[in-house]
Simulated assay, not measured.
Amino acid sequence: MPDRPTVSIRFSAAEIANRVDEMAKELAGKLAPDTLVVSVLKGSFVFAADLIRALSRTGADWSMDFLTLSSYGTATETTGSVKVVRDIVDDVRGRDVLLVDDILESGYTLSFAKDLLLERGAKRVSICTLLDKPAKRRTKLQADFVGFQAGDEFLVGYGLDWAHRFRGLPYIGVVEKTN
Results as ranks from 00 to 15, higher is better:
G173R: 07
V20D: 08
L67Q: 10
E22Q: 09
F11A: 07
D132A: 08
P33S: 13
G43R: 07
G151F: 01
V38P: 08
A24R: 15
A54Y: 04
A163Q: 14
F66T: 11
G43E: 08
A75Y: 07
K140F: 14
M23K: 08
M23L: 15
E22I: 01
S63Q: 07
I88G: 06
V174R: 14
L104N: 08
D96G: 09
A60I: 12
D161T: 07
T35S: 05
G121D: 15
A143F: 06
F166L: 07
A49T: 13
G80Q: 04
M23W: 03
R53F: 08
R4K: 12
V97T: 02
L160T: 05
V37R: 10
Y72P: 10
H164T: 11
S56V: 02
D3Q: 09
K177T: 13
R4E: 14
D152E: 13
D3A: 15
A17C: 03
A48T: 15
M64P: 06
F11I: 06
I88N: 06
D65K: 06
S126Q: 04
L27G: 05
N18F: 06
R57T: 11
I127N: 04
P134K: 01
E119F: 02
S44F: 09
S12T: 05
V7P: 13
T178C: 00
A122L: 07
V84T: 13
G59F: 01
K30D: 09
D91A: 12
V146D: 06
S56R: 09
T78A: 15
L104D: 08
R93G: 05
S8N: 01
K30S: 15
A13R: 06
R86C: 08
S63N: 02
K136F: 09
D161I: 09
L36I: 12
D91K: 14
T178H: 10
S70I: 03
L104Y: 03
I172A: 14
V46W: 02
L69Q: 03
G173H: 06
V37I: 15
S39G: 15
T78Q: 12
L51R: 11
D144E: 01
P170V: 01
M64H: 13
K42V: 02
L99V: 08
R10E: 00
S56G: 14
A163M: 10
D87R: 05
T178P: 07
Q149G: 13
G94N: 05
D132Q: 08
I52S: 10
L131P: 08
L160M: 12
G168Y: 12
G107T: 03
D152G: 00
L116P: 11
R4P: 01
G157P: 13
I103G: 02
F154T: 01
D90R: 11
A24V: 12
D91I: 11
F112H: 02
V84N: 07
A13S: 09
A24P: 15
I172E: 10
